[in-house]
Design a binder for these strands. Sequence first.
DNA 1: GTCTATATAAGGATAGAC
DNA 2: GTCTATCCTTATATAGAC
Lengths: 209, 209
Amino acid sequence: MDASLNVPHFSTKQRILDSAEALFARHGFAGASLRQVTASANVNLAAVNYHFGSKENLINEVFRRRLDSLNEQRLRALEAVQSRKDFSLEDVLAAFVRPALSLSHDQEGGAGFVRVLARAYAEHNEQLRKFLHDNYGPALKQFATAFARLLPDLEKQELYWRLDIVSGALTYAIADFGMIKRRGISEQQHRDLAAEHLIKFAAAGLRAA
Amino acid sequence: MDASLNVPHFSTKQRILDSAEALFARHGFAGASLRQVTASANVNLAAVNYHFGSKENLINEVFRRRLDSLNEQRLRALEAVQSRKDFSLEDVLAAFVRPALSLSHDQEGGAGFVRVLARAYAEHNEQLRKFLHDNYGPALKQFATAFARLLPDLEKQELYWRLDIVSGALTYAIADFGMIKRRGISEQQHRDLAAEHLIKFAAAGLRAA
DNA sequence: GTCTATATAAGGATAGAC
DNA sequence: GTCTATCCTTATATAGAC
């Protein structure tokens, strides 16, 4: 029996996506070159153009690969919460945060992706924002509806503002952009702590009179 | 009388800083080239190296120019708040937020700088973070002390976490990274609104049990 | 202090053999 | 589907005239 059957087969395409994700997280989209990406992935430089056509398309594929399942998991978690007799603001927030956390824990390179996602916010690039809006928007709307039900006294505009702030704080916290020094604990534990604190903080902020 | 005495004199150095700030805000540090910068500033390409030595040093100078006065204003505002008989969490938050807002309103290109600042968070660049920590740290510590006094029941570690979240949400909000669409109102008004909402939100989050 | 010209390196992308 | 080799553009940086 071929021993190679026991190890997963990482295609060139996958390896490029993994390396691109990690390098975009670390150096930004403009800061990471295709030469760095292909060197890190141990593939030929020309492979990027063969498989993705261009750097810009590679960037899009880096997002698409993770966002689909992330959105799906978030919506599933939200449904689970909503199916219960009663649920709290914290429950809905957790449904939003936890899939991002488990993504960054379970999947190889997932930790890098949440940083890539955070970088995307900083890019005022129209195309990228439209891409995110199209892929992110629908799921966000579901959450907004859930929040609106839990906060019936909040004006709609006010709610949107607060959700925008939550979304920013969340992105920032999970991407570990803060200045808090990690001492002794792993990156993963740090992220868990960040999420925990964030949920408490955000729930209070959303409930503010 | 020389008519030129009536118009401010914008030196080559200043024009480079202004253009660099705007372009770094828009395209990031790696994304904006010195050629774009010098073209936008209407100066010769070689001028950057003459005045700043290197691109990296230019980046540092972009920060230094604004951070000094921003920190100063923040600390002055904090002192003014603390000199009163009593003051609220919201007052301290405003002391932190308002200088950043007025910077982005009053000064030409100031709006760009808050975005540059936000970009710096996304850069996990060690050097840049050290630079920010050295220049930002002391002022932040003063604010942390003020918050600690207003929240005596909060554990120290818990406070740090929350301040980190506040700082992230703040950076994000003022830099206008959110997905909320501006309809009819100016960028300036949008920023004011963001700050207003943010202060309310953050105060509630900090007070959370 | 500001210019032109250029050195030198790195970038994205492609053509064409295998 | 993967390689080498190369095109062409852009990048940072500098040398040297003015």
